[in-house]
Amino acid sequence: MELTGNLVLQAIEMLVVLALAPGLTGLVRKVKARLTRRRGASVLQPYRDLLRLLRKEVVLAENASWLFRVSPYMIFAATWVAAALVPTFAIGLHFNWTADLIALVALLGSARFFLALAGMDVGTSFGGIGSSREMMIGALAEPAMLLMAFTVALVAGSTQLSNIVAFMASGEVGIRVSMGMALIALIIVAIAENARIPVDNPATHLELTMVHEAMVLEYSGRHLAMIEMAASLKLLLYMALIGCVFVPWGIAPADAGISGLALGAALFVIKLAVGGTMLAVFETSIAKMRVFRVPDFLGAALMLGLLGTLLLFVSRSL
């Protein structure tokens, strides 16, 4: 009975995540539009876009292979599974024990791997330019992310996200320099991984400056819908990750009862709204950087992650 309840809760969580993701993207776009004194589309616009794309036919490039058609579903599935690993409003769900923070990073790596391959499949230079740059960014972001995971795991004594959240929420942690460094490193990685300004511009229309958009240039219809959905999910995943590790308050244990879970869910939505607004403000206040400045940016994240880890060796209380 307990197992069934837990599984139902798991399913609800996965569906909530799926339902909220386009809304978060819509919110970021809305706030950005307001900040630049435009009215902007409704927060619900991404939902409408997705439905429209799903209904449209797929226009497939002549040279596209089966890999190109399978990839959107693979990318979506890997990202969704990764998102299900992050505690959003409840911890202790069974699926949390399937994989830990390191596996989560690697799952996102799998999604990126297939996205980059899909970019290479049609055989145009835009796909290649996007794939090669994405893999370069990924190659630098992944170690930074892992070092951040090391720091957090060293503090919490576990790489299992449920345990980390429980430890962080317990109040034993206090304010630590190393956690601050890990937070900045994670934010930098999140910006790079989600193709946000200053690393990449999600709204660009110039092929040569694209990274993420160049890879998916050939996608259309339902395939594009799956990829857009996966991108939204990834943004939500990173927000939820930052939220659950650094502001873990309100996340309920799986056996907390309806009221506890409802409170957790409400707080989760508020956290997402705050995070989305902050992202929009940050993106509006900064210019996109040249592609070859990105390594410096990510190098900073790598160094911060390493410093955070090393500080913990100097003193367990830093």
Binding site: G109, L117, M135, A139, L306
Partner: peptide, 26 residues
């Protein structure tokens, strides 16, 4: 450990290139 993570991420880049250039495209 950071270097090994870098190696793992670069391996992904390497094999996207290996597979993509040999098997994908025109």
């Amino acid at each position: 450990g950071a270097l090994l993570a870098l190696a793992a991420a670069l391996a992904a880049a390497c094999f996207v290139r290996f597979y993509g250039v040999i098997f994908l495209g025109r």
